[in-house]
Design a protein around this nucleic acid. Structure first.
Length: 155
DNA sequence: GCCAACGTTGGC
DNA sequence: GCCAACGTTGGC
């Protein structure tokens, strides 16, 4: 069992969108490191923290789970799609995606400024490695954040 | 809207 | 294979 954090801009695709869709394919990842993590490490049933980037404040807002393991991301072959990749060979697709299933919204969003205040999270990839849209979290980090979401919001 | 971090591209 | 130019992410 692995744990993950996946970023999405809420204007693009929010946790509410995921809730109404139930399951969605996580297309558009065009970063090799993120791709390799999804392709090699992500398994059905893995738990995912759903994170709103470019929000005020950026926040962990929900929980999802991996519903399907890596398969080709069809948007790479669509010239009209913003994620079109003319160099990707259909016989050997360069980019893959996974399916994510909605589990729950957190009782309250846990914002980035708050996350930074917890020594327990000082090693989080989120706080140390900018610009990685799919990233691993430890089980302890996952459980800690979910527990904080049941606490009252700090001042 | 700005810009720092950093990944990718392509000329050489 | 180096590295400058360029593009993107994402916090602020």
């Amino acid at each position: 069992m692995h744990y993950w954090l996946m970023k999405s801009e809420p204007g693009d695709y929010s946790v509410d969108d995921l809730e109404s869709d139930g399951v969605t394919h996580w297309d558009g990842v065009r970063n090799y490191q993120a791709r390799n993590l999804m392709r090699d490490e992500m398994h059905v049933g893995d738990h995912v923290l759903f994170y709103h980037s470019n929000a005020k404040p950026p926040s962990v807002v929900g929980i999802a789970e991996v519903a399907r393991e890596a398969y080709p991301d069809h948007t790479q072959f669509d010239p009209k799609d913003p994620h079109f990749d003319p160099k990707s060979d259909p016989d050997e697709p360069r980019w893959i995606m996974v399916d994510i299933r909605f589990v729950e919204k957190l009782p309250r969003p846990v914002g980035l400024p708050e996350l930074k205040t917890y020594p327990e999270l000082s090693g989080m990839v989120l706080l140390n490695r900018p610009r990685l849209s799919v990233q691993p979290v430890t089980e302890a980090e996952f459980e800690f954040i979910v527990a904080r979401a049941s606490d009252p919001a700090p001042e």
